[in-house]
């Protein structure tokens, strides 16, 4: 189960007197980034609406969203800091603390649970020597248990650092993934071929993707929770 455990439910207080984690001389948006923020603002009638895209951009740039970055976003959008903080903590994809370079979000919801996602989690935990919710000592990997990622037919599956999906996970696939990531090779975008396309079009309909996968019979499930 993920960090908050209903059996021992503890909600920690964020550090209310935080030391800045981004060096002061790096804590700014470039001209281009500020222009991008202006473009975000133009998409909506209010500045406040631009908070989500701006947080995404900041996370892209700084890797995570420590308080000083949220403040930076607030200043760029001329919003109260608390509004930015409140929004950032509502959404799970915003990293409020530093994560590993690669975050492995293993879906353990509903269909994935029924198709062996906890076996995937076990395997990863064993392999990386950490529990879900933790980061390896070298700062490379974080494992997280997440909710349905909208790819239930290719369960078990995971997402790497809010980016590409990896489908139909097996131990071999996980080994390969970890090795690739150790070499900083992100998994490519993979288009999963519709079963009806397989039948009627002999494969994936997209000619612009290099990597495809198909729906497969899910594996037996050893651990269910």
């Amino acid at each position: 189960m993920s960090e908050f455990n209903i059996k021992k439910p503890v909600v920690p207080l964020p550090d209310m007197d935080p030391e800045p984690q981004i060096p002061e001389d790096e804590l700014f948006f470039t001209e281009e980034e500020l222009e991008q923020i202006e473009r975000y603002k133009e998409k909506y009638p209010t500045n406040r609406s631009a908070v989500m895209p701006a947080l995404w951009m900041a996370q892209q740039k700084f890797g995570f969203l420590p308080p000083e970055v949220m403040q930076l976003v607030a200043d760029a959008l001329d919003l109260p800091y608390a509004h930015v903080f409140g929004a950032a903590t509502f959404y799970t994809q915003y990293y409020k603390e530093k994560k590993g370079t690669y975050v492995l979000d293993v879906c353990c919801s509903f269909s994935c649970q029924a198709c062996g996602s906890y076996d995937v989690l076990d395997y990863l935990e064993e392999k990386l020597g950490i529990h879900a919710g933790e980061t390896t000592e070298d700062g490379r990997f974080t494992i997280q248990e997440v909710e349905c990622l909208g790819s239930c037919g290719t369960a078990p599956m995971l997402q790497v650092t809010n980016g590409p999906y990896v489908h139909n996970l097996t131990e071999e696939k996980l080994d390969q993934l970890i090795e690739d990531l150790r070499n900083d090779k992100m998994p490519p975008f993979t288009s999963v071929t519709l079963p009806q396309d397989e039948d009627e079009m002999e494969g994936n309909r997209r000619s612009d993707v290099e990597h495809t996968d198909t729906y497969q019979t899910p594996p037996e499930t050893k651990r269910w929770i």
Binding site: V11, L13, P14, D15, M16, D17, P18, P67, E68, M70, Q71, Y81, A82, V84, F85
Partner: peptide, 8 residues
């Protein structure tokens, strides 16, 4: 729970 932004 309600809170201020950290540091505020």
């Amino acid at each position: 729970y309600p809170i201020t932004g950290p540091g505020e």
